[in-house]
Design a protein around this nucleic acid. Structure first.
Length: 707
DNA sequence: ATCCCTCGAGTTCA
DNA sequence: CTCGAGGGAT
């Protein structure tokens, strides 16, 4: 049933007036919504596809005739809209976290141990009000292998769909999401016991392709002579990121919901259990995993795991493991998160897909820092739907430890189903021709010495002018985290360096379009684009500039710390070792790398030339909340936010604290300095009282930071 | 001295 | 995504 494929039906000449049309449109939409639900969610249609198409066409025609009556939740939105030039980025109000992984039961037990420890369930100081071991139960469901997204519903209407992105910021793919047949455009209240719909709801889930749909789609593509998709995951992710949503509409995508983000204005009690969230979502019209399981302990989880693994092929979608969550939402809140993963959930992955192949050769590549990295060149082999021909061997010791020789038969797998790695050598199949790899003592790119410093694992080329290093440094300069120069790709850098046109980043800014014209694939237009893109980076922020310089041990985070602490390039260059080491997150090693970098005459000359070409690193960043310096110094202080905030969003509050040098974490501990508690604060507030941590209201917090 | 968490750096394929 | 190592807390 695909309305987009239905041939046009001649105009019926309905002759409604606007009121009549509106009434008819409302009836049609409601009816089509019901049929969609029965077809896609309940799998129990009441009418034939042909009858459905007639209703759909009628609605389409009416909407064409009365454009004012179009609506974002109309089923006709599902056929897609004309292409957009690019996706807008969209910041998640609550970050979309990723999950920690476990592969064995032992690793699951370790995770449980961390859960117990965090909840104070082990050790001597168990207090009366603390939860007990029996309170920690689990909910497990299959881990969908697709693309994670968030759907935003305002007053029950789907208003946005956003990809996970880096977890903080994703892309707005609303037009594409609307084309997914089992995504409710409007939340359903049809189920008798369904809860009333909240004012604002973020639904999280996975966009996937069912195995059968994927196979059928590839069959169609093969008949049409179109390229095939490697696997359902790539096909889903690719379809979701189509700029032309009419293309997305032709792809057989499905959405499975598994969680919520913001829930505002929910009537009655807040959610208390993970399974309740799932049941409620199902009641509102979402498709959820067809099999999920409550488990009183890890042994029950393990049974479910083995059951699912055994019948893995029979599941209608690809699952790469199990997601196990602590069932109680109160405990989830108390557990909080570490970095970008919640402590209350874990992915228990199925064993990675493996394949056997032969190592044809071992090649060495030279990185930005001169690191010599060996890569195994493999006889191409399919692993999990992708042809793999190379696998990293990391470093010299790794080759020795695994005793990988050229000509060996090896087992490879895709780590996390992405990056190929050599698991082990099949020694039984080793033939006499297999020879040990002699790790080079000289850099293969420039012939300089390659040395391995005492106590380190990495072998490095000592020559700073090594062409391979120059290329990587230039490429790094333009990378997304650094100066983000559009068009400065690997191929272009290669040509620039090989022809001696550019040898360092300053050289890039001395380029004019004429220098580029003799290069391959460099017509006038792309040359001008590159020069423009470079010009735009002249006002990049100081932290990006520092990242781009490629100082050892200084990446995005440390660069931001330096920019925030010193505020200008000159001050950073003047800073002495003691000043640097006093800064949180900077220790002797990082300090010494910074000092060394700026003390080298060559680097100082590079910076002079960059500044002379018009670069002026900006700090504080313009327009960002972070820029509103109030002169308050929060460095070294750790904040936890709990309950609702009124004046600020969580994201703003976090950025504010960080911009003033403080840190924000999610769980209260003895090292927390302040807990900012709003209405609805619960266990964290209690924990703060217990530990004697200072508690502030939002207004007091704002006063404290001078806003 | 030891653990845990983060950060940096390097890497694959489509 | 994974590994190694820096930094901070215990």
């Amino acid at each position: 049933m695909n309305a987009a494929d239905t041939p046009d039906i001649p105009d019926s000449g309905d002759g409604f007036d606007s009121v009549g049309a509106e009434r008819r449109i409302t009836v049609l939409r409601e009816e089509i919504h019901q049929h969609n639900h029965r077809y896609y969610i309940l799998d129990d249609p009441l009418i034939s596809d042909a009858e459905y198409d007639i209703l759909f066409r009628e609605l389409q025609q009416l909407e064409e005739e009365w454009p004012d009556l179009r609506a974002p939740d109309s089923p006709t939105m599902r056929v897609g809209a004309p292409p957009a030039p690019e996706f807008e980025s969209h910041r998640h109000e609550f970050p979309m976290l990723s999950l920690a992984n476990a592969f064995t039961f032992e690793e699951m037990q370790e995770w449980q141990g961390r859960v117990y420890r965090q909840l104070n369930l082990v050790g001597e100081s168990v207090e009366e009000n603390d939860p007990s071991l029996e309170d920690v139960t689990y909910m497990a469901e299959p881990k969908f292998d697709g693309a994670a997204i968030e759907l935003i519903y305002e007053n029950g209407i789907l208003t946005a769909g956003v990809t996970r992105g880096d977890g903080e910021t994703g892309e707005n793919v609303t037009a594409n999401v609307r084309t997914i047949r089992n995504v409710p455009l409007r939340l359903s209240t049809a189920v008798p016991d369904a809860r009333a719909i909240p004012d604002l709801l973020d639904v999280r889930g996975e966009v996937i392709m069912l195995r059968s749909e994927f196979a059928a789609m590839n069959r169609r593509r093969s008949e049409a002579g179109e390229p095939l998709f490697a696997n359902p995951r790539n096909a889903s992710a690719g379809s979701l990121r189509q700029l032309d949503s009419r293309v997305t509409a032709t792809r057989p995508l499905s959405f499975f919901a598994y969680g919520v983000g913001r829930v505002e204005g929910l009537e009655g009690d807040p959610f208390t259990r993970q399974s309740e969230v799932l049941e409620t979502l199902a009641g509102w019209g979402f498709q959820v995993a067809d099999r999920w399981q409550l488990a009183a302990d890890l042994n029950e989880v393990e049974q479910f795991y083995h059951g699912l693994l055994g019948g893995r092929e029979d599941i209608p979608y690809e699952a790469d493991g199990l997601v196990v969550k602590v069932e109680s939402l109160d405990l989830q809140i108390e557990l909080g998160q570490v970095s970008r993963s919640p402590r209350w959930a874990i992915a228990w992955k199925f064993p990675a897909q493996q394949a056997t192949t032969v190592v044809k050769d071992i090649e060495i590549s030279v990185g930005r820092t001169g690191a010599l990295t060996p890569t195994a060149v493999l006889e191409p082999v399919e692993v999990g739907g992708v042809i793999v021909s190379r696998a990293t061997l990391h470093n010299r010791e790794e080759i020795q430890r695994k005793d990988v020789r050229i000509g060996d038969t090896v087992i490879i797998q895709r780590a996390g189903d992405v990056i190929p790695a050599v698991v082990k050598v099949v020694t039984g199949k080793r033939r006499s021709g297999a020879r040990k790899f002699v790790f080079p003592a000289l850099c293969p790119e420039c012939g300089s010495d390659a040395v391995q410093p005492e106590g380190e694992v990495v072998v490095r080329c000592v020559n700073l002018s090594c062409p391979a290093q120059i290329k990587e440094r230039l490429f790094h300069w333009g990378s997304r985290e650094a100066m983000d120069v559009d068009g400065l790709g690997e191929k272009l850098v290669e040509q620039l360096v090989d022809r001696g046109i550019v040898t360092d980043p300053a050289g890039l800014y001395e380029l004019i379009a004429d220098d580029l014209s003799p290069l391959d694939r460099m017509a006038e237009k792309s040359a001008n684009n590159l020069v423009d893109a470079l010009a735009q980076t002249k006002t990049a922020t100081l932290d990006r500039f520092l990242t781009a310089l490629g100082i050892r041990q200084v990446g995005t985070v440390v660069a931001r710390v330096l920019a925030r602490t010193f505020g200008s390039l000159e001050k950073i260059m003047e800073a002495d070792r003691e000043t640097l080491e006093e800064i949180h997150d900077i220790g002797p090693e990082v300090a010494s790398q910074v000092i060394t970098f700026f003390s080298m005459a060559e680097n100082r000359r590079l910076i002079d030339r960059l500044l002379a070409s018009g670069l002026s690193p900006q700090w504080p960043p313009e327009g960002e909340l972070a820029g509103v310096s109030t002169g308050v110094d929060l460095s070294g202080l750790i904040f936890v936010f709990t309950g609702e905030l009124v004046e600020l969003t969580r994201g703003e509050a976090k950025r504010l604290v960080e911009s003033l040098g403080g840190r924000v974490t999610s769980s209260v501990s003895s090292r927390t300095d302040y807990v900012i508690a709003g209405p609805g604060a619960g266990s964290k507030r209690a924990k703060a009282e217990e530990l004697g941590v200072e508690i502030l209201e939002e207004t007091a917090f704002l006063a404290m930071i001078g806003r």
